[in-house]
Simulated scan of single mutants.
Amino acid sequence: MAKGAFRFSAAIGAAALALTLTLQGTPVAAAEKIVISNWDGYMPPDLLERFTEDTGIEAELSVHATNEEVMGKVTAGGGRGYDVLFVSSPFVEALANLELIAELDHGKIPNLENLYPEARNLEYDPDNQHSVPYAWGTTGLCYRSDLVEEEPDSWMDLLKPSDNLKGKVTMLATDRWLMAAGLKALGYSVNSTDPDEIAAAKELLIEAKHSLLAYDDTTFYSKLVSGEASLVHAWDGWCNYGIAENPAIKFVVPEEGSDMWVDTMVITAASENKDAAHAFINYILQPEIHAWVAENILYKVPNEAAMESLDPSLVETYPNLGMTPKELMQKEQLRDLGRAQRDYTRAVTEITAAQ
C-alpha cells in the first residue's frame, strides 16, 4: 500500500563478471541481472546498490503504481522481462493460478527462519510455496483526537458520520478497501462473493458518499494534518505518516473487524535468473535490511528478528507498529475473489460515479 521514487541499474566490473558468489548458502553467477517491479519508495533507496556490492548481481528497478498495473504487464507478457515482483496477497493467488509465478526453493532462502511462525503459513499461500511476505498490516480509522467529539470505534462512524464530521471524512477508493468498509459495517466478509451482500454494501457506500470530503488513497493523512479532514479511512502505516506530523492523530481498528493485507515478494515463472532472484529475497530478509521498512516506511514487517531490533521508542510513537502477529491474524486475510472481482469493480465504479 505504498510509496516514493527511484530507479537504479548497478554495474559491476569485468573482473566480478567472472566470479561466482555465494550469498548465505545460495550460489549465483555474478554476471546475472535481475529486474524487480515494486511500488515507489517501498525499499531503501540504496538497496539495489548495496545488493550489487555484496553479491555482484546487477539489479534494476521497475516501478508500478498498483497491483493491477503490474498484473496487467505480467499477464500480457507472460512475466518475461521480470524476475521479482512485489504484489499483495490476492494477486499471489491469482498469479499462481495462472502459473505465472514459480514455486520457491526454500533451501535458497535460509533467512526465511527470521519470519514469525504466523508468516510462514498464511491462508493465501500455505508454507510460502509461491511468496514471501514483505510487509503486513490492517486497515481502519485514522482521526484527529483533538477534533472529534467522540473517539470513533465503528465503520458506521465513517459511513454515517455525526453532523460535525460531515464533509470532514475521506475514504479509500481502491476496490477491495472501499468495498471492505461497507461489507464489514454490515457484518459480512471482506472476501464475500455473495451478489446480495455486494449489492447491500454498494448501496450503503453510495449513501455514505454524500457525507464525504473526498475519496483519497494518497494524501488523506495530509488532510488530517491540515485539519481539512477529521476522520479518514486509512491503512495503518499511512496513518503513521500523519502521526509523525501531529501526535493528536490516532489509529483504531473498528469493532466490526477489518482486513489483514500482506505485500509479498514472488519470482516469475518466466525468470531466467531464479537463483539470483532467490538471493535477492534472502537478502531482504536480513534483519538489518528488513528493519529499514519498519523504521522508514512505518509499516510492520513479518520478520521477527527485524521487529525485535526496533527502538522501543518507535512503537511508543506509532502504537500500531506494536500490533502482534496474533492480533493481526484475527483480521480477515484478503483473498483472490476470482470472477467476483468484476462485481467489486463494477460496484465501485457505480459508487464513485453516483450523484
Score class of each variant (00 low, 15 high):
234 A>Q: 14
273 N>G: 03
270 A>G: 08
256 E>Q: 15
243 I>N: 02
280 F>S: 00
253 V>C: 07
261 W>S: 08
243 I>P: 00
246 N>R: 15
296 N>F: 11
240 N>M: 09
293 V>H: 01
252 V>Y: 08
260 M>Y: 09
235 W>P: 00
262 V>N: 00
243 I>Y: 06
247 P>A: 12
242 G>T: 03
237 G>W: 11
296 N>S: 10
278 H>M: 06
250 K>G: 01
262 V>M: 00
283 Y>C: 05
255 E>K: 15
250 K>M: 08
286 Q>N: 12
252 V>D: 03
287 P>I: 01
277 A>D: 09
261 W>C: 02
293 V>D: 00
232 V>H: 05
256 E>I: 12
251 F>C: 03
278 H>K: 15
283 Y>L: 09
285 L>E: 01
285 L>M: 10
275 D>T: 09
249 I>F: 13
271 S>T: 13
257 G>E: 02
232 V>E: 00
265 M>Q: 14
259 D>L: 13
268 T>N: 12
236 D>T: 04
261 W>H: 14
230 S>C: 04
243 I>T: 06
293 V>P: 03
285 L>K: 06
288 E>A: 13
267 I>M: 03
269 A>Y: 04
290 H>W: 09
283 Y>Q: 07
257 G>L: 10
282 N>Y: 11
274 K>M: 12
246 N>G: 07
266 V>Y: 02
244 A>P: 02
235 W>M: 07
230 S>W: 07
263 D>K: 03
259 D>P: 01
243 I>H: 05
289 I>W: 08
278 H>C: 02
249 I>G: 11
285 L>V: 02
270 A>I: 09
267 I>R: 07
274 K>P: 08
265 M>T: 00
241 Y>F: 15
289 I>S: 00
284 I>D: 03
284 I>T: 06
282 N>S: 14
231 L>C: 10
239 C>A: 12
247 P>C: 14
239 C>W: 07
248 A>R: 14
265 M>S: 04
236 D>N: 13
245 E>H: 13
238 W>E: 08
247 P>Y: 13
274 K>L: 02
256 E>C: 13
260 M>W: 05
266 V>R: 04
267 I>E: 03
278 H>L: 06
295 E>K: 12
236 D>G: 08
260 M>S: 09
269 A>V: 05
230 S>I: 00
275 D>A: 15
232 V>W: 03
258 S>G: 10
262 V>D: 01
258 S>L: 04
285 L>D: 01
291 A>N: 02
230 S>E: 02
266 V>K: 01
242 G>M: 11
